[in-house]
Simulated assay, not measured.
Amino acid sequence: MSHPTNSDLAQGKAYSGHGVTVYYDARRCVHVANCVRALPTVFRPGERPWIQADQASAEEVAAVVRACPTGALHYVLTDDGPEQPEDITTVTLVPDGPLVLRGNLNIAGQREVRAALCRCGASSNKPYCDGTHAQVGWTSH
């Protein structure tokens, strides 16, 4: 089984800190805000730059990035390389929301470790969820 490489996952804008670089792909963010709640010293949506990766240890930043369900955030550790997939692939249906995947994924030819896929059909960033389901009133019932 091959694991994602730095070039596979390093998409979006880069924010570097001590021992870690965080990549943010705004097109995939649906503002779950796990990052902001877990580490507000690093993830500051009201400031520019909004990610200040040097305000916590590389390990703390990496742990919070791994909690991002959409894959909008990824990281590369200076000493250990890119984020690695979880050993077991999981699929979670979010009520009235996306299909959330974690594991060693290949989606539309792109290597991923986490992704939220559109279920409503209205996303402008298919196959990824962009939060449009809430705007169009889509439900999974």
Rank of each mutant, 00 (worst) to 15 (best):
R37L: 12
F43P: 05
T132V: 05
S2V: 10
A14L: 07
G137A: 03
E60V: 07
A26S: 13
A63F: 01
C68L: 07
Y24N: 14
S7C: 00
A33G: 00
R114A: 15
V61W: 10
P82W: 05
V32T: 13
V42I: 07
Q84M: 00
L9Y: 04
V22S: 09
Q11I: 14
T92P: 05
V32K: 11
H18T: 14
Q11K: 15
G103C: 10
T78E: 15
P4M: 04
R28H: 03
S123A: 12
G121M: 05
N106S: 15
L99M: 13
N125Y: 13
G131V: 02
P98D: 03
Y75V: 06
E112T: 09
C118F: 05
N104D: 15
H133F: 02
T70P: 01
P98L: 02
Q110T: 15
G19E: 05
H3K: 15
P69T: 07
A33I: 00
H141C: 03
G103Q: 11
C68K: 09
D54I: 06
P127I: 11
P127Y: 07
S7R: 14
A116G: 14
Y75W: 04
T21D: 03
G12F: 08
V30W: 09
T89K: 12
A122P: 00
V113E: 00
E83W: 01
H133W: 02
Q135H: 12
A26L: 04
G46D: 14
H3W: 05
H31N: 05
A56K: 09
V136L: 00
I51S: 02
Y24M: 11
P98E: 04
P85L: 03
T90A: 09
P45F: 10
L99Y: 02
S16M: 08
V22E: 08
Q110R: 15
R44Q: 15
Q52I: 09
G71E: 03
P45D: 06
D130S: 07
D25A: 13
G17F: 06
P127L: 08
V91Q: 15
G19A: 04
S16H: 09
A33M: 08
T139Y: 00
G46R: 14
T89H: 03
P95R: 12
N104H: 13
V94F: 02
V22L: 13
R44Y: 02
D8H: 13
D87I: 08
D96E: 08
T78Y: 04
G131I: 02
C29T: 03
A38E: 09
P49S: 06
K13L: 13
A58F: 06
C35N: 05
S123I: 10
E86Q: 14
G137V: 06
G97R: 12
T78Q: 14
E47S: 12
R114Y: 07
G12E: 08
T21L: 06
D87W: 05
T70Y: 01
Q135L: 13
C35F: 04
A72H: 02
A26E: 10
T5E: 06
V20R: 09
R102Q: 14
Y15W: 06
V91Y: 10
A63D: 12
V36K: 01
R111T: 05
Q55C: 01
A56E: 01
L39W: 03
C35W: 01
I51R: 10
G103F: 10
V100D: 01
Q55I: 01
K13Y: 01
S140V: 00
G97C: 06
V36T: 04
